[in-house]
């Protein structure tokens, strides 16, 4: 007979766990984003590679430094800031001057995440906060697009990439207007097939809808993303676009174009689904998704800007706690049950 040990652990039940872990979830989101990032590098070359690298590094470094300053343990290893960096990089024009990329990354993580108290407390998606800052501070640079699949994209960088801080960036070619800008300002439509495969101009990671969707399906299947959000957003946009296009095909683009162009896919699948900044109930997520869908459509069709996904998501992030305040699960054995 063996002797029982002298000390026993006292631990509250339950004594077993599913094994799910925040860092595993976050790492999987990174995996799901990698093909999108790879395609960005493939279509925009070194410019996109540098943009993404600086975006990720600036975000990660900011969180590391701020944790240090706060004398708190580093949270970099939960991978959430890597997602922020990647997502942020993917929303930028590939030839954006790198110092601007770094600025936005620092602002996004510092103001959008750490200021709120870090992971779990951020009211907004930090990647979008960084991008919104750039949009406000450097509107011209943020709408200067380089063409995709340019010759020599793997051997040389656009001149604008290494612009000195606060000098006006120089662009080699400014002919890379995005499909949404073409639609808005020149009433010119891009074929949906090209959009799906990412054969168009745009932000680094916004162009290939198929890869974005594949990443989303992977995460949804592993329950690391609430599929109701992208489905609600895309469904709403499709429905509204279809209706307007039916009523006035001259002024309003068809649904397929609306769905596949600009940052909608990336936003709907990867950014609106930021768990922290979206509602907790399934019903709340649907409401939140519909709200984003309506906002995107309204901004795109009637707003002054060609793209509205970023503002739509940020606005919905702000509303999300109120959706939670209104929509709570129906407690077992209370009204509404049988």
């Amino acid at each position: 007979m063996s002797q029982p040990p002298r000390t026993l652990e006292i631990h509250s039940s339950p004594h077993i766990a599913s094994g799910a872990s925040v860092d595993v979830i976050m790492r999987n989101v990174v995996w799901a984003l990698l093909p999108v990032a790879a395609f960005a590098v493939y279509s925009f070359g070194l410019a996109a590679l540098f943009t993404l690298a600086v975006a990720v590094l600036s975000c990660v470094a900011t969180e590391q430094v701020l944790c240090r300053l706060a004398a708190a343990p580093s949270t970099v290893r939960d991978w959430s800031v890597t997602i922020t960096g990647l997502l942020y990089g993917l929303t930028l024009p590939p030839a954006l001057p790198l110092w601007m990329v770094a600025c936005g990354g620092i602002i996004g993580v510092a103001m959008g995440k750490c200021l709120f108290g870090g992971l779990g407390y951020n009211a907004f998606n930090p990647a979008l906060v960084g991008r919104a800052f750039l949009q406000a501070a450097f509107p011209a640079a943020m709408t200067s697009w380089t063409p995709a699949f340019a010759d020599g994209r793997f051997s040389s960088l656009p001149a604008s990439t290494f612009t000195f801080p606060f000098a006006a960036p120089e662009y080699d070619v400014i002919s890379g207007a995005t499909p949404l800008a073409l639609m808005k300002f020149e009433q010119q439509l891009t074929a949906s097939g090209e959009l799906l495969l990412g054969l168009t101009n745009g932000s680094a990671g916004e162009t290939c809808a198929a890869l974005i969707l594949a990443g989303g399906v992977y995460l949804a299947a592993r329950r690391m993303l609430n599929w109701r959000i992208p489905v609600a957003i895309l469904g709403t946009v499709a429905l509204l676009a279809w209706g307007f296009n039916l009523a006035d095909p001259l002024h309003y683009p068809p649904a397929g174009f609306m769905l596949l162009s600009g940052g909608l896919m990336l936003g709907a699948v990867f950014m609106a689904t930021d768990m922290v900044a979206s509602p907790i109930t399934h019903a709340g997520c649907v409401v939140y998704g519909v709200l984003i869908g309506v906002l995107v459509t309204v901004i795109r069709l009637w707003g002054g800007m060609p793209e509205g996904v970023m503002y739509a998501i940020l606005l919905a992030n702000a509303v999300s706690p109120h959706i939670d305040g209104l929509i709570q699960p129906r407690v077992f054995g209370t009204a509404g049950g049988k």
């Binding site: 925040v22 870090g118 329950r223 609430n226 768990m275 407690v331």
Partner: peptide, 22 residues
């Protein structure tokens, strides 16, 4: 322990439909 990331796993697990996250 990490901060609550609002993943709703607990909400989907609670047999009494409570909101353990909240």
């Amino acid at each position: 322990e990490y901060p609550c990331i609002h993943c709703a796993y607990c909400v989907d697990a609670c047999p009494l439909f409570l909101n353990p996250s909240q």
